[in-house]
Design a protein around this nucleic acid. Structure first.
Lengths: 238, 238
DNA sequence: CGAGGCGTTGAATGGCCTCAACGATGGTGG
DNA sequence: CCACCATCGTTGAGGCCATTCAACGCCTCG
């Protein structure tokens, strides 16, 4: 229940200074709309580093000045209730921006924790703010990021917080294979699954075990599954 | 279960053309950052109108070019699952913007339905888009609106979709009185409550009835309650 | 007055949670 | 190298809580 989360040492995760102009993700990333001039105005360099599963990127309530873009991997955003209950409210993956709220001068709203080995770029929110005022493309892209986060959040409510445990697990699996666009997907620890779906770890475990027995999913490696998409969808019609 | 929702006739809801410069909400509204010049560039006039409870402002999937600001009242955003299940994902009230997604050229993402008599202003997204590029204040305000919606959506997951039915109802009540900042609040039909909390109408009804018997809430008029805030909060600690 | 919508309540079922035990796995230190 | 321990997934038993299906009273409205 209580996870030992270690705040990463900057030093050990350090991966160097990024050259955004050469970035392989250049076209899908927030900085897609920047030109040569703009980059020179990112006074502080963009840093690149790696998180291991379980590593904490930042904690809820922390003040900070950095935003992040995910190059690869997977990050969970966790929120806590006063009574200690926790809930995962979103998953972020390649090309997603982490920490948008910093743009508005807020503190971080969630715990951001890596679920897989994750490569990130860090850059100062202040620079994004300034650039966005003059660069219409960046301005537009920012709004699009926010809207995407909002759409994800809404889907989280309707798909992953509604219906029976079986349905929620099925929807989670279908969601994951859709992102991968193949019928394979990699899953999480059962505790994380529970925190995503609003069910207990035991129920998550039982449901997955049940799906395995029924052949709805086939485990090819630890927490790596092939999904029987049509039959999972059939589960949702009833 | 199936509600008969009538799309309002523009004509009967018509309330006139708004003069934003004279607006009593001027300082809290999206257009707070506009100046005289800007207003002249809102080529199409801002229209003002009223919805009655149950009226549909727009439907999910509709294409449109208008955004709305709520002058008074209450709007629910409803999303549907393929199997027909519905879930209310957000509530919008005074000064909130409805239909932000239109700014990005999307179709409307939800059904937007009035829960109370609601006064609205309608304006074209295109104009907002153009103005936001040149007006930094509007630019900033837009981001702030999106962030607020996102924060609300996250809270919806952690507060209203987590824990027992009793806890969810208690959190909903506390949320409502916080918005009113007095210990009074007005509630909704039991079916809407269920759709907000991911529980059945019967459970919603039973829980409210139970709270009434225990004196945690006192009904002053139909669906209007005074809440015993401290004891409701105590419910959440366990 | 009758019809329909809505809130309430009852009884029974079933699904999820709680508490508990056990096996498998992987890392650590003797 | 292996015994040991911690962590994680799984499974079982029992109980509670939410759902389901049903009935009934109240109210508004035609």
């Amino acid at each position: 229940m209580d996870q030992k989360i270690l705040k990463i040492e900057e030093a050990e995760a350090w991966g160097g200074i990024a050259d955004c102009r050469q970035c392989s993700l250049r076209n899908s990333v927030l900085f897609a709309g920047l030109n040569e001039d703009d980059f020179t105005r990112l006074h502080r360099p963009v840093e690149q580093f790696v998180l291991q599963p379980g590593d904490l990127l930042y904690a809820a309530g922390e003040s900070g000045s950095s935003m992040f873009t995910i190059r690869s991997g997977l990050i969970k955003l966790v929120q806590y209730l006063p009574d200690g209950a926790q809930r995962i409210v979103r998953l972020l993956r390649t090309t997603d921006v982490v920490g948008l709220e910093i743009l508005l001068g807020d503190r971080y709203h969630h715990d951001a924790i890596a679920l897989q080995p994750t490569e990130l770029c860090r850059y100062p929110a202040k620079a994004v703010n300034e650039l966005s005022i003059e660069n219409p493309r960046l301005h537009h892209d920012l709004m699009a990021r926010w809207q995407k986060a909002l759409t994800d959040a809404d889907a989280w409510v309707t798909e992953l917080s509604t219906g029976s445990a079986k349905q929620r697990v099925a929807r989670l699996l279908l969601r994951l294979v859709r992102d991968e666009d193949s019928s394979e997907c990699s899953l999480f620890g059962r505790e994380d699954m529970g925190a995503m779906l609003g069910i207990t770890t035991e129920t998550a475990s039982r449901t997955i075990a049940d799906f395995k027995r029924k052949g709805l999913i086939i485990e090819t490696a630890t927490n790596h599954f092939i999904c029987d998409v049509p039959n999972l969808e059939r589960l949702l019609e009833s």
